[in-house]
Design a protein around this nucleic acid. Structure first.
Lengths: 360, 360
DNA sequence: CGGTGTCATGTCATCGGTGTCATAAGAGAA
DNA sequence: TTCTCTTATGACACCGATGACATGACACCG
């Protein structure tokens, strides 16, 4: 592979002049520049980042660690996709700053994070991002040197800067929108409470009810999410069946996520209940494959993964450039409600009141 | 950041000895080794890959280019997931060989591939992999230096080594299995022919019919896949309606992919036809979010993305180590049929005859 | 016409490791 | 005892860029 010396020799100039042509850091005569450029293309010269990096002490690299490119031993989860969107956002932001991204994968095994971080440090990455597949708490090894790090879709108890979805607000906005549409009996089939998003969304649901002047009714809430997924459909069936037999049954079911909503569609159809004319359904995640493909299309809340990625990259770049003495703790990113046909408007909604709701 | 000289000074040895401890390329005395290791951990020393690379001329890097981490302007496609699995397979293989992966993204714009390849060459990657989001033909810029390159899920007309799904065999095996199950009128709702997989799968379908002694009937085949997706549901509805009115209607619908099958479920239910008791449905892709979550779970053909990734990495590593003067052209990877409850067994199947069929 | 500034270019050292070769110390053989 | 032969370690150059500094050629100024 050709070096800068080869180019210099062919062009009849000093290596430093070639360097100047490449980097444009000092004026170069027109004739000289052309000679150099001709030599470069003649030799197919590509400068070595390693050599440049040694001298300049800047790698232009960002390390990205994710847990879900390769997933846990049992890859039943549809995960991965969220992370992909986050990565997409990060990539988009980073591309503009001339940074190159290195991606490594823990294969879902947290212990693998340490050697991966080490690999990145060997490459002298200027920043690290850890992306989790769903909103959760993590415990990563401490980075001893000063390399900045940011967490996306997860947080720790050391106050490492983190970017998180605003689950509370999302569920709140959705339920507020349902209330605006005239729904007052709102069933909620929740995620299990161990998942970080579970309690947050439940709180958002309750807050929206409160703000809408509706009393919280525990009979309308059921956890239908199991660790192992086998019993889920049955659990859902029972919960829905029970709620629909109430003297004042729900007119809409909020589901913990879109995948659960997909199941609920099937169950309601099996029960002979038409969606949305007899009962409405809403999801969470805006998992497009499901939400847009279902018939009728699913009303849901967007998990703003791409935006989170963008924010993560921006915050990291700010830390790297040292502009800001970053305050610790999380940045919350809220996503809009996607209003589709799976929910009936019981009365005409005054949509203009709801700023964060997005109609399709 | 500490250097090898700092470590050497603290440990009271020469830098070269520290290097030997790190790389184990020559015997080092026990006491010396311990002094060095102590100094290393005392200083939190992490060796610089850049410096190492300069001397040894080996980067330990593999460049991966993908078109779908950030997708086309209109991100309605659920794409990305397939690529993720391919990347997972690549990562898995590569991790064992001590290679680190750099990932870059074209954002769906093919023209961006050239500068990304250039970035990788600057980093002196030892190999390149281009991953496409679906089976297609591509035209990438030629790599002028000798860096080996491999295509995954795509091919070009220069005979660049490629890893492709065996669409012909997959569809063939599925249809053969349907025939074994007693189906003789097999409807096929195809992908549009411009997609590489379309004609291959159609050929597989016809070959399986032929082998099963069933005459191909054009009335049972319809293209239901449009470039813009708007008319698709209607197209499907019409095709299904037409076929079901035939004097000898299909007992099973093969769908171009699982997403189409999801739509077909909805349509058949709307028509009041029960799946699978009245009519069976089969998909293609084994897109788990859909195939496993649908009720009843969907019989489909696995697109062996992970395996393709593994093969891609293996073939690349073989090219890098120069073991093999690689022959050009594609490697086909076949995936198994996943037999689930969306297809009725019209007569008891002798499954043992079908080696590549996987029961759940 | 000398002084001063700008432009264009070259010289040289250096970043942090490792390959090559040299060398000292002890072990075993003659 | 002396001569190999390992074993353990050091000295030194070098990989390919770039930063700091120097220099020569003009241009412009008073």
């Amino acid at each position: 592979m050709a070096t800068i010396y080869d180019v210099a020799r062919i062009a009849g100039v000093s290596p430093k002049t070639v360097s100047r042509v490449l980097n444009g850091d000092a004026p170069v005569g027109k004739a000289t520049r052309e000679a150099v450029e001709s030599a470069i293309s003649q030799l197919d010269y590509v400068p070595s980042n390693a050599a440049r990096m040694m001298r300049s002490q800047r790698s232009g690299l960002i390390g990205l660690i994710t847990g879900a490119i390769s997933m846990s031993p049992e890859p039943t989860q549809p995960a991965g996709l969220p992370e992909l969107f986050i990565v997409q956002g990060i990539q988009k932001s980073l591309a503009n700053s001339g940074m190159t991204m290195m991606i490594a994968d823990t294969g879902g095994v947290v212990e693998k994070a340490a050697p991966l971080i080490d690999t990145f440090l060997r490459h002298r990455v200027e920043g690290l991002i850890y992306v989790a597949e769903y909103h959760q708490k993590v415990a990563l090894p401490v980075i001893s040197d000063g390399t900045p790090m940011i967490l996306a879709n997860c947080f720790d108890d050391r106050g490492t800067p983190a970017i998180l979805p605003d689950d509370w607000r999302g569920q709140h906005d959705l339920v507020a929108r349902l209330i605006t549409a005239g729904h007052r009996r709102i069933g909620y089939l929740t995620l299990r409470p161990e998942i970080a998003a579970g309690p947050l969304r439940l709180d958002g649901y309750r807050a929206a009810l409160l703000a809408g002047g509706i009393t919280y009714d525990a009979a309308l809430v059921a956890n239908c999410d199991l660790e192992g997924r086998d019993g889920e459909t049955q659990l859902l069936w029972e919960a829905i069946d029970r709620m629909l037999r109430l003297s004042s049954p729900p007119t809409v079911f909020c589901c913990g996520n879109d995948k659960m909503a997909l199941r609920v569609y099937g169950i309601l159809r099996s029960m002979g209940r038409k969606v949305p004319t007899e009962v409405s359904v809403a999801g969470y995640d805006n998992y497009r494959v499901i939400a847009e493909t279902l018939y009728p299309p699913l009303t849901t809340v967007d998990l703003p993964y791409t935006a989170m990625g963008v924010r993560a990259a921006q915050r990291l770049m700010a830390m790297i450039s040292g502009e800001i003495r970053e305050e610790k703790g999380p940045t919350l990113v809220a996503g809009p409600v996607y209003w589709r046909d799976s929910v009936t408007e019981l009365r005409p909604a005054n949509v203009s009141l709801l700023k964060s709701v997005r109609e399709e």
